[in-house]
Design a binder for these strands. Structure first.
Lengths: 122, 122
DNA sequence: TAACCATATTCCTGTTGCGGTATATGAAAA
DNA sequence: TTTTCATATACCGCAACAGGAATATGGTTA
């Protein structure tokens, strides 16, 4: 049942934040690290988890890997993404993530970070 | 984050079926056993899991325990229950459960089952 | 080529959770 | 009171998973 897969993916805090961030558009690993403030291993492993279960797709762009939600998510996933976005409005932690994401592009440009070409707002 | 709790509860097949059944109204343990066709321990333990996490409430009625969704589920839970009901329409296993639930009352009355007074349709 | 960068994978450890067997509880019936 | 019934809990073994440290990979730059 795909439903269970979806819930398995969303029952971890880091993965929930990742998926939520992706509802605002694609992101590369270094941006996840910056927004989530979590170590690279952790982010990378959760992305792999999500990838093998079809919740996200990845595309290589030079040195960077850009992750997005699947182009055509399917009915169940779409419903749950909408539900997540709805609920996220009242979750301070998730709002904060989105805020950090918005401020990301200039922040990264100024630092000696990756400076990758992934769009910062989808 | 209550969101994570909800997903933890729904990421197991048995628990997903339990919650889905409860969207159609309260049910006692023996009815769960009959509809899910799962052993008593399994059902009981998953109900306990859901109970400690606030996804269901229980009320004793004589020998029987009647489980229901919380009377005032809160915004996040409500949203996810609606989402579940929406998705369930395309899940054969969940549709089948509902069908068994509908046919439950006469079935139980005829057998030497519990015959408990829990309403079969909420 | 070598060095470097962003990311992925491997190995480890502790924790959680699932399923089953056996047993305990608590209310009702005999 | 003892039995019976519906349900809950304790204990066990097993598999999945989370997090961290170290290392591997696969592209890019020098």
């Amino acid at each position: 049942m795909q439903l269970i897969r979806i819930h398995e993916c969303l029952c971890d805090r880091t993965r929930l934040r990742i998926i939520h961030l992706l509802t605002a558009g694609p992101l590369c690993v270094c941006h996840f690290q910056a927004v989530l403030r979590e170590p690279q291993v952790k982010v990378s492993k959760h992305l792999a988890y999500l990838r093998t279960r079809g919740l996200v797709v990845a595309e290589r762009r030079g040195n960077w890997m850009v992750y997005s939600l699947p182009p055509r998510p399917g009915r169940e996933l779409s419903a749950h993404l909408a539900c997540l976005q709805d609920c996220a409005r009242e979750e301070p932690a998730l709002r904060r993530d989105l805020e950090r994401r918005r401020r990301l592009a200039p922040e990264v440009a100024g630092a000696d970070h990756c400076g990758c070409g992934a769009p910062a707002r989808g």
